[in-house]
Amino acid sequence: MSEIERLFKQNALDSDVIKKKLIELGESFLGGEWKNATLDQVHVPRLLSGQSNYLYHVTSSTSATPYLLRIHRQAPSQVFTDTVLFAILSGGRLEEYLPSKGFTEDDYWDPEFVRRIGATLLAFHSMDIPVSKNVRCTKLMRDWLNGYEELGGSDYEILPTTVTYSEHPNTISVQKLSEEIDTFEKWAREVFEHTLVFGQIDFGVSNVLELNSTKEMVLIDCEFSSYNWRGFDLAMFISESAITFNVPFPPGIKISEDLTDNSPIIRILCEAYLDADNKLKNHIPSDRSSDLESLIQECLFFWPLTHLFWALSAMKHALLKFENGVDLDVQARDRLAVYFHLKPRSQKIYDELKKGKKTL
């Protein structure tokens, strides 16, 4: 845990200790009126508390430049942000605060919102970013699994709480989880390596903003952003739409089997993404229907991998006693149950595509 994270965990947001630190950061990196700000002039609401970051919007009643304080809960290996970066700290960073509108889980069911998301994601994927082209999501998964084992984790019992799927083993070893990563990575490399793009990775409704000034949609919280299979981002958005994270009682999470087995938005999202891609390339498809079905198939293939991704993260962070309002062991077990429920479909897609390649 970094010094700044420890400071914020051990002190109340409205404490003098926190306010002094925020004035110090403002004065050091932004200057101006921050050097004259007093404790009673500082305001700092928390915007987000997740597994990756704490976000705070720091303002004062003076003309001092407001800023966004991001405290990392996991050490980032790179920094990618659409906002102005004021400073990089040990354990966090200061960024420009963008006046904007956020979205909620209810927005998943607005078709127009989903269409805008599809076009926005395509624009994000079209960027050429000068970072390693190696796929990072599977590396993150291995890192989390190794961290789980180093913290004393061993065979993991899968006892679902909010789902009733039963295709999973009763327990799973660290070695078997490692083999699951290897297998899925092998499948993806063999049939979808041509789909690598710069991906957001952590793509859910909470990481989308609409700027007040232009009404443009932007993606935020890009701690994991790196080159990845495009279907992973599409699948991540779909899989997260089936999960409620604001359940006001334990375990704080609920996965919908109906929405997992029959997503009402997958076709809308993929259509918008495909149409935006064709528009960007000034391309008139000869068989749009076939292209759309292929993209949906791609999304379905990666769907279980998104659950394995977050299950491994939750397993490690449960041992670290992370607090984000969700029982992380329940999340891990339920996501593993979903993973094993959906995996056979992915294997079938892989087998069909692999067979098709051999006949060409």
Rank of each mutant, 00 (worst) to 15 (best):
P99A: 08
G147K: 12
G152P: 03
L98Q: 13
D155Y: 09
W144M: 06
D107S: 12
R189K: 15
L89I: 08
E210S: 12
L140K: 06
M141H: 03
T164E: 13
E167M: 08
I117P: 04
F103Q: 06
G92M: 02
V197R: 15
T161P: 00
S206R: 14
V131Y: 10
T161F: 09
V191C: 12
D128N: 13
R189I: 07
G102C: 00
L140E: 06
I172S: 01
T162V: 10
T164N: 13
E95Q: 12
G204S: 06
K176G: 01
V135A: 11
Y108G: 01
K133S: 10
P99T: 04
L159M: 12
D110E: 08
S100G: 02
E95G: 08
A123E: 15
V163R: 11
V114F: 00
D128V: 14
K133Y: 04
I172C: 02
I129F: 01
H194R: 11
A87C: 03
Y97M: 11
T83G: 00
E95A: 10
F192N: 08
L121H: 08
H125N: 05
V197N: 01
K139E: 14
G102A: 02
E180I: 01
E190A: 13
D202K: 10
E179N: 09
K139R: 11
Y165W: 08
Q200C: 14
V197I: 12
V191T: 14
R116G: 11
I117K: 04
T138M: 09
I117Q: 01
L211G: 03
Q200V: 15
L89Y: 01
